[in-house]
């Protein structure tokens, strides 16, 4: 047994070290940083100056941060409704006994697997291109006036649209797994009673998908709170207010671009804490509001 004990320690130690070095220590330090002023990220703790809630005050009075929160909320609400609705639509179609189900499912999920930077580049450099882009070619084909999709007032929606295209597949898979757990005899009974496919969707499928909807909403919230890549791709050099999101504000505050001196690691840490609290709050709220108590699937 003593030999076993030695093995247990040896086997678990690298994993515990990972947890401490990569997660426990950084989380605690980020939390502490959010209450201090410091000249740069690498400054030793000795040079930190206590700032109380000053950093939180600073970010919540920053117009860029407020704008980033507004953008995040818009992504969460509009993006969430469209993504989850499309995902549910595809899931219902794919589980209705359609042919080539596996092929369609794999094709819709595909953007989740390929490099998002490559995908975003395809959208920006081709689909939204003003001169030879797909959308404007279509508009010209129907004799419309071409739109500058990447102009300031359209950019946010262009970004959201392309992000949704890539995101739908993941949520669709979760919905499909939920639908496939619903017993088939419910549908057979409904069909015998003369219910149409659409009635079946509204009366059987949707009510029984509460549990997976909760999962999807939680993932969507995390996805939105940590949204970064698409904003960066749509404003690659200088951050633009139209697409700024909190993580981008955090990055710019912690690592200001060359020349500028405004690094404020404390404020960046405060942004991180705010985002973590948002995720935690939504997670707790989801578990309270949507209970999958009635039917355990």
């Amino acid at each position: 047994m003593k030999k076993d004990y030695k093995m247990i320690v040896l086997f678990i130690l690298p994993c515990v070290i990972t947890l401490l070095v990569m997660y426990a220590y950084p989380v605690v330090r980020t939390f502490l940083m959010s209450f201090f002023s410091m000249p740069n990220i690498t400054a030793p703790v000795g040079e930190w100056e206590f700032a109380g809630f000053g950093k939180y005050e600073k970010i919540f009075t920053s117009t860029t941060f407020i704008r980033s929160i507004q953008n995040m909320l818009m992504i969460w609400i509009f993006g969430g409704i469209i993504t989850l609705a499309l995902a549910l639509l595809f899931a219902v179609i794919l589980t209705s006994g359609i042919r080539f189900k596996k092929f369609f499912r794999a094709a819709i999920y595909m953007p989740n697997v390929i490099s998002a930077v490559a995908l975003a580049t395809m959208w920006i450099q081709y689909i939204f291109n003003q001169q030879y882009g797909m959308l404007n070619s279509l508009i010209k084909f129907f004799n419309g006036t071409p739109i500058n999709w990447l102009a300031t007032d359209m950019k946010f929606w262009a970004m959201l649209g392309s992000f949704i295209f890539g995101a739908v597949g993941y949520y669709m898979l979760i919905f499909i797994s939920g639908i496939e757990k619903i017993p088939q005899d419910l549908y057979e009974a409904a069909t015998i009673d003369g219910a149409s496919k659409i009635q079946q969707a509204f009366k059987i499928t949707f009510p029984l998908l509460k549990g997976v909807t909760k999962t999807n909403l939680t993932f969507w919230t995390i996805n939105t709170a940590t949204f970064y890549l698409w904003s960066k791709m749509f404003s690659p050099v200088d951050t633009e207010a139209s697409v700024v999101v909190p993580v981008m504000y955090l990055y710019d505050t912690a690592f200001p671009s060359r020349g500028s001196t405004g690094a404020d690691p404390g404020a960046a840490a405060a942004v991180g804490i705010v985002l973590a609290l948002i995720i935690l709050a939504v997670y707790l709220l989801m578990n309270k509001v949507i209970k999958d108590d009635e039917v355990e699937l």
Partner: peptide
């Protein structure tokens, strides 16, 4: 701890790791 670590967003850890 492992399950919590899985859901810790990167923004919570990058500054100290840097």
């Amino acid at each position: 701890s492992l399950i919590i670590a899985m859901s810790v967003p990167a923004v919570m850890i990058v500054l100290p790791i840097y």
